[in-house]
Amino acid sequence: MRKKIETLGILCLLILFIMAILYPALNIISVSLRSDDAFQTRSLTLWTDESSFKSYFTLFLETKFLTWMKNSFIVSFVVTLTGVVLASTSGYALSRFNFIGKKAVLFSILMTQMFPATMLLLPFFILLAKFELINSYIGLIIIYSSTALPFCVWQMKGYYDTVPPELEESARMDGCTRFSAFTKIILPVSVPALVITALFSFMASWSEYVVASIVLQDPELYTLPLGLKSFQASLATQWGLYAAGAVVVSIPVTILFIFLSRFLVSGLTIGSVKG
């Protein structure tokens, strides 16, 4: 009984909180449904007589939204894959081995995040131009991966630290090599961390605008944020389209999260080790 009341209380609290959180999001949805192409709304009725899905039709039929979406998927997919593969391996090495320069690696990885990104754009451009990577996804993917990696590496390492090393030692004695012990035993246990790494890498590339805007200059190659931004101009934004685009952009992320969050459950429990 006490537990039920408690659950109910928590539920109420959460719902209140979620309402507060969703308000701005609903605002965006209501802009996307309105016909006047204006951003400021005073009332929060989602649907009025003048509402329509016109912006959404325009978005899909008259703009290159689908192309951008495809491009974004390609880029985000590769970045996510790179992120997961590289972060899970290097995080593992950093968690399990003691070697010269380990501390330096861990610290310098963090330090790379400390320089204001705005000032990196100019040298990025020079670098990419030198290697002829302007207008190519390789440049973009390399930059995205390496900006997402520091967090992912640390977070994987942190998770591995909580996994008892006896697990892979057992596997090695059972006949695995170092590497197969890692893939067969440790990776499955680390699914929650992998999920976060994947989600984060995906997000880092999915809605990134600034770097994309210097790397991609062919509209055919645009990713979603670049495309969306083109609805926005300094003094005349297509608010309806822009908002509709934003809503659609956030859908894959939400779906991805719903999908991934199933694995965001205990990978490791006391079952493997005694208390």
Binding site: A171, M173, T177, T269
Partner: peptide, 17 residues
């Protein structure tokens, strides 16, 4: 270790969860 033909039962059992 995989080549040594020894088996080990660990202090914590290290079962594959």
């Amino acid at each position: 270790p995989s080549k040594r033909e020894v088996a080990m039962v660990f202090q914590n059992y290290a079962l594959y969860p």
